[in-house]
Simulated scan of single mutants.
Amino acid sequence: MLMAQSLFILLKRTRPDCHITVLAPAWTKPLLERMPEVDESLVLPFDHGELKLGARRRFGKSLASAGYTHAIVLPNSFKSALIPRFAGIKQRIGWRGEARGLLLNDCRYLDKAKYPRMVERFAALAFPANKKLPDHIPDPRLLVTRPMVDKALAKFGIETTGGWPKRLIAICPGAEFGSSKQWPAEHFSMTSAKLVADGWRVVIMGSAGDAAIAQEIYEGIEKRVGHPLTDCCFNLTGKTSLAEAIDLMAACTLALSNDSGLMHVASAVDLPVVALYGSTSPDFTPPLASISRVLTTPIDCRPCFDRECRFGHKRCMTEIEPHRAVAAVLELYAK
């Protein structure tokens, strides 16, 4: 959803009077509320993978009176194109896939060489087919205010010294895609312990599903620094809402993250990001922050885009050594 903001920005630039309504799952609402270009959001009442053809038809029909003139369908599935068709929206735009030509009347062939990045594929749908993209595609940027940040910092007991917290790094160890995208807990704890010893504070962030690895990282940091982590390490995994995670991320100095949703959140609040890529590729979904460093390994089998390592060694992640991450953090901090 975050990279779709680039599309929304371009739509507003080229058609200032357009009204943008986004139909998306409920979990995206905190993101959409931080996008000034979005005028309205509607909750998609279907879970991922559900067809429910009759219910989709009824839902689509219920939107017909809204008077939508254009629908841009970003997911590539057949079922995602059903609702605009049932709603009777005249212009239905999207990339070809799953025989969607039956539902889309501006169904485009995707030249992956021409548009290698996901953000480019979204942005291209703001323009007529075959029109050249602008030289610069606007990066996603979520709206965050100081009161929002102060409220989140106060709730989780992260003190400031008059201004923004200094040398506060967000550690994002989760990877819902699969373990092939996950840097080892030991590497995160080694890196974090080195930074804590140098005076940094650490915030471990993620969903409830990341709680086990986060606790392993926290305990590893504590063991390495040799003292309790009171006031220097905050394990907030599973304790924040998405809105709070956005605000806390905005308060940080840097983020160290796997290729994950939180990496893109950090980028969208323009936080300097050190991004760890294993099975996936920064050529497709890079961090879109103004300042970033991507760490990878040169092994032949990456990127494979497998959720789990087919060889079982996960060398693409394990061989990104902690000292490289520390050096990258300090390099970005010096900027």
Score class of each variant (00 low, 15 high):
Ser65Val: 15
Gly94Gln: 10
Glu186Leu: 15
Ser267Asp: 00
Ala268Arg: 04
Leu242Ser: 14
Lys155Thr: 14
Leu153Ala: 08
Arg13Gly: 13
Val38Asn: 13
Ser192Asp: 12
Thr14Ile: 13
Ala250His: 03
Pro140Tyr: 01
Ala266Met: 05
His70Asn: 10
Tyr218Arg: 01
Lys52Cys: 08
Ser257Trp: 02
Leu262Val: 00
Met3Asn: 13
Lys112Thr: 07
Leu229Arg: 06
Phe188Val: 04
Ile83Val: 10
Lys112Ser: 12
Pro84Thr: 04
Glu33Asn: 10
Pro228Asn: 08
Asp106Trp: 00
Leu143Ala: 12
Leu103Tyr: 03
Trp183Phe: 09
Glu120Ser: 02
Leu10Met: 11
Leu42Lys: 05
Ile171Val: 14
Arg13Asp: 11
Ala212Asn: 14
Pro128Trp: 11
Gly60Met: 01
Glu216Phe: 04
Trp183Lys: 07
Trp95Asp: 09
Ala185Trp: 03
Asp17Tyr: 10
Met118His: 13
Ile20Asp: 12
Arg302Val: 08
Pro138Met: 06
Ala327Ser: 15
Ala87Lys: 02
Ile20Met: 12
Gly209Trp: 01
Val329Ala: 13
Leu142Trp: 02
Met3Ile: 06
Asp106Phe: 04
Gly163Phe: 03
Leu330His: 12
Leu23His: 05
Tyr333Cys: 14
Ala64Tyr: 15
Val329Gln: 06
Arg117Ile: 05
Leu168Glu: 10
Ala289Arg: 01
Ala208Asn: 12
Gly94Ser: 11
Ser207His: 14
Ser189Leu: 06
Leu63Arg: 02
Lys239Met: 07
Arg34Leu: 05
Ile89Leu: 06
Leu143Tyr: 09
Cys252Val: 05
Thr253Pro: 06
Leu242Val: 02
Arg34Gln: 05
Ala251Lys: 02
Asp259Gly: 00
Ala55His: 13
Lys223Tyr: 11
Phe311Thr: 15
Trp164Val: 03
Pro116Cys: 05
Ser260Glu: 04
Pro128Val: 11
His227Ser: 12
Ile72Glu: 00
Gln182Arg: 15
Ser41Gly: 13
Pro116Asp: 01
Thr253Asn: 10
Lys166Arg: 12
Glu50Asp: 09
Leu330Gln: 15
Met249Thr: 03
Ser241His: 07
Asn76His: 11
Leu31Met: 08
Lys151Gly: 12
Ala99Trp: 14
Asp47Gly: 11
Thr297Arg: 07
Glu308Thr: 07
Val149Phe: 00
Val119His: 00
Asp39Gln: 14
Thr280Lys: 02
Glu331Phe: 02
Leu44Gly: 09
Lys155Arg: 10
Gly49Trp: 10
Phe177Ala: 15
Phe46Ser: 14
Leu229Asn: 14
Leu256Lys: 02
Gly226Glu: 06
Arg167Gln: 15
Ile169Gln: 04
Ile9His: 00
Glu222His: 04
Thr69Leu: 07
Ser279Ala: 08
Ser207Thr: 07
Glu40Ala: 07
Pro134Phe: 01
